[in-house]
Write a protein that binds this DNA or RNA. Sequence first.
DNA 1: CTGTTAGCGCATTCAA
DNA 2: TTGAATGCGCTAACAG
Lengths: 337, 337
Amino acid sequence: MGASIQDVADRAGVSIATVSRTFTLPDKVLPRTREKVLKVAQDLDYTISRSASALKSGKSARIAFLTGGELDSWYDSHVLAGLNSVLHDAGYDIALYAVSDEQERHAFFSDMSIKRNADAVLVVSFQIPCTEADKLATTGIPLIGINTEPIPEFSATIGIDETSCMELVINHMVNLGHRKIAYVCLDPETEHFKWNGQARLQAFRSICSKLGDRVNPTVVYAPKDDTRADFALSQLARLDQHPTAIICMNDEYALPLLFCMQRSGYTIPRDVSVAGFDDSTYAHEIGLTTIHQDPYEMGKSSAQTLLKLLEGENPDMNMQIQPSFLAVRNTTAPPEH
Amino acid sequence: MGASIQDVADRAGVSIATVSRTFTLPDKVLPRTREKVLKVAQDLDYTISRSASALKSGKSARIAFLTGGELDSWYDSHVLAGLNSVLHDAGYDIALYAVSDEQERHAFFSDMSIKRNADAVLVVSFQIPCTEADKLATTGIPLIGINTEPIPEFSATIGIDETSCMELVINHMVNLGHRKIAYVCLDPETEHFKWNGQARLQAFRSICSKLGDRVNPTVVYAPKDDTRADFALSQLARLDQHPTAIICMNDEYALPLLFCMQRSGYTIPRDVSVAGFDDSTYAHEIGLTTIHQDPYEMGKSSAQTLLKLLEGENPDMNMQIQPSFLAVRNTTAPPEH
DNA sequence: CTGTTAGCGCATTCAA
DNA sequence: TTGAATGCGCTAACAG
């Protein structure tokens, strides 16, 4: 049951070094020898002990996944699945760190002597302060940002271009003839960790202000819990001028709002246009106009970049902008007059 | 940067043994000494090296998470988040194994000399053959099943009672006055890995047959891809007698079908009743009648059981049935006559 | 191409 | 309560 490298070496009539090599540097071993070793290993149900090889080689074979969101969110879970699909086969484990407040974030950076216990850090959906980014950067281990502000401390970042996505949505609304546009989002104060939350709101504001008189924007905050749709709707109803177009920070805001409005008697898009961000669960089936992005692919892609970094290559794709587009579907139309 | 146990020992004026003890057996160290060591460790940004302590102690501090589904599915991602919320704090990593065919499953059991590289195995949504379960069981490491057939090889299993859940749904329909009931699911041939798929279909059949003349059941298969709703609807339309009630294997079948039917002009529940399983994303907001279950809690709960097992306790809760109930909402009603 | 050797950093006996 | 000493199982020089 616990066959060691020694057992395999003995049985195969070679030294433990050769056994080790057949697994880590197979080319440096005569094919015949290699096969013999492999066969014995299989018979004995032997594989390298990760702990031992990690200790000796100084690489932990672990990647830290640091998220400011929830692991079971649409975004994070898809990124994770994408990451794992390549990192697992490359022999890496992913250590999950879900950090929900400053204290926990601080704990991550101070408690964990990262350098010794992870070969790289992936920062997901997270505003990471420069001081802490710096601290990581100086350890010399790769730091990859997924859906984060592209600060120079990162060895690489990947994400969509939030600003141009927002521009796509706003332009779509404006081109349809909308002027009174509301943006529904979580209060940025309550989610100062999440990068896309910040970025989208800021983009909304700056694009609208560039558009000047052509738009009449409002921002409505809604909490993250189950009541968000009701809350948002009542806020919207309370506005002096009712918006004819509503853009939501993500589909998890847009869809419940859509359901809620339909239940309240609105017909979408006749009475009001609604758009979301992400193209997440059921957006397609429901026909929601939204920004499409693919976090699974982003996970895969960043894993590949990471592997290169780990092999010492210096991929020049340090700031990858992942493809995204506006999927125009059935919840947006010209305003009624 | 890379402070070792030696550095800490030197600076604190103690031996490395004492440093080691302050972290692993803090009680066996004089409070004063402990604090001194802790302080130095903090200054030096030192923590135990996982690889080294794993090697020495013979425990890898890794838990294998073996799933037959997708990591980014509603179910798996919630289980994983729940697991991580307790295992992470207990010092364990979760190694993710997403296995999609027999070959990969076989690879898991043969390639991975599990015993040396994981302290326990969690099997999620997975039909695991007895021979392989046995192989795991004989290694002596805990084997926990989540949403799996409760076979004796498992040290513990956790899940909902699929049969009684199905009974709840069918009875609900029957009590409303439905007789012609269709069950929409993935063809079991294509998902012979997934336990709940099998269990639910079997439960549907056996409960209906127990009900005899009171019901007139049909089973309709639909693929897993984007076309499932259209496909299911066309299959249903083709039936000799149109069902007045449709039960779907899970919400991911029920909701798209619901949308699709509404688009096709059906009014739910006036024209037909629809129920799902899981109470997953948006089921609540949409008002879908469905079986509620909480995979996050199941993850937490199994992690706690696992920790006990790992500490040598033998929790007698070896077969935990997690609470679940039928959430009756707005997609089921008596049939029109 | 293969074997010998010397640790990697820590946990744990055994003495003190 | 603490320290000295001994490997855990493997990898990476190095020598052959």
